[in-house]
Amino acid sequence: MIVIISDDSKDNWGAAFEETLLQTESEVFRFSSNKLDIKPCAACGSCSGKTYGRCIIPDDMQQVLVKIAGCCSLILISPIVFGGVSHHIKKIMDRMASIGDPRYRINKGEIVKGMSGQGMNYYMVGTGNNISEAEKSAFLYLHEENINIMSAKGRAFVLDKGFNRELINKTAQEILHE
């Protein structure tokens, strides 16, 4: 199962990716993060203690977590904001801590964590127009660190020609063939 979570504040990126992915994949779920009611993580610690593995904030993130826990690929699509993601997408990332494995592992000599279950492929797509080199490299760096700490696989893509169907199709195809 592939889950797409996109910030569609400007253009309908998620739907465009879904259209291409559905040509090959039968199970694709899509959320527009900007239309969901998701509160910021409160760092209450419940998901690693009292309600281990479950976030206690009763909002739309509950339905998102049900889909992304155990999905095989997660695609986060966000405008590149100061070399990172928009706050709509960052709220999702922060709240994903509840499906992480809180135990520590060692990878390449460093302490890392992992996701619960089989582990997922984690893709990030950064969008924009004429994005600066500094912002592009910061965005790719964030993804690199994310897959490291989550012990996940996956790639980051930067689409800097605005809402461009051809580039969307090409990126979706690359994700399918990973």
């Binding site: 993580c41 960052k90 922060d94 964030l142």
Partner: peptide
Amino acid sequence: INTYPARLV
């Protein structure tokens, strides 16, 4: 998750 929290963004 490797950067500042959403609310600061």
